[in-house]
Design a protein around this nucleic acid. Structure first.
Lengths: 157, 157
DNA sequence: AGCGCATGATTCGAATTTGAACAATCGCGT
DNA sequence: ACGCGATTGTTCAAATTCGAATCATGCGCT
């Protein structure tokens, strides 16, 4: 069996962990809902458009996109197909590697993103960013930075 | 149309927001995976068992359970059915309200939870809690406490 | 050139999640 | 006691997500 005496979470630690989970669930729900009704996009879809918009040429390889989105490749295939049906993204096969596929942001995709972004940012601001002080923001950014870095890194296993 | 000049997120704000999303995604992935292979439970299922275990008598009304879990009622119906098939939870109809249903933690459910908890807590500790300083934890707990409270409260709309 | 393993992306089926619609019942106000 | 809007939990179909398997290709090595 495992270690007989577990180091349970104390009150503060529990508060942090459950607060994190709760905030995540609630934030996601609101964001999903707002994005859907104001721009007709799911949060995952919005994130895809954002990554593509940032990328040079407005395009990224499927795998690269999946990596930055922290999602599975099969899921990305599905979402990109949906976005393609909506005309917001198109696929382009990679010239130097027959296996490779680029997801490319279309003009309409960019327009849709630009239409969605202000409302989305305003919501994130209202629900999270503006609720916290600058000091809190810094601490969170640092903390999550560390956590994310360790999670990506196999050594932190 | 919306406000023409949006207050975009500055670097620090972006770092906090994206760090939050990334940490959430990565943490969830790991937790899901570990819980599945070490205890045969999904994270949602584990959370259900935890809430029931905390509740007096090891039972809660479906709606109440759904509320604390921040999930939809239909989803809870599904999960409880799954847990019932596994023998970890059973349903009991409410004596004072014919419509009402209690989800009750079974002996086997409690055993399974007790078997899963140490590993789960250890993982949360290793990936999140122990990575942060006590000060960071406090800020996180306070910040997300506020955020969650506002998200639940319709006035914070 | 040819072998063999790693990669890139999709496909497939199963599991989960969602939201709307439903049926039954409650309980408040008259 | 009655009417009726609110509540409780489930059902249903559709959308999403997951992971294993697949298929085709790239690349290093001999």
């Amino acid at each position: 069996m495992g270690n007989p005496d577990t180091r349970w979470l104390d009150d503060e630690e529990m508060r942090a962990w459950e607060g994190f989970l709760a905030a995540g669930a609630l934030l996601n729900r609101r964001i999903e809902q707002q994005l859907k009704e104001e721009a007709g996009l799911s949060h995952p879809q919005y994130e895809i458009l954002v990554r593509l918009d940032r990328a040079p040429g407005g395009e990224l390889r499927m795998t690269e996109l999946a990596d930055t989105l922290l999602t599975s490749k099969s899921n990305l295939t599905y979402q990109v197909t949906q976005l393609e049906k909506s005309g917001l993204v198109r696929r382009r096969s990679c010239p130097t590697d027959v296996r490779g596929v680029f997801a490319v942001l279309t003009g309409e995709g960019r327009r849709r993103l630009e239409a969605a972004a202000p409302g989305h940012v305003a919501l994130v601001r209202r629900l999270l960013i503006d609720v916290l002080s600058r000091e809190q923001l810094t601490v969170l950014a640092d903390g999550f930075g560390t956590v994310s870095r360790r999670l990506r890194d196999p050594s932190a296993d």
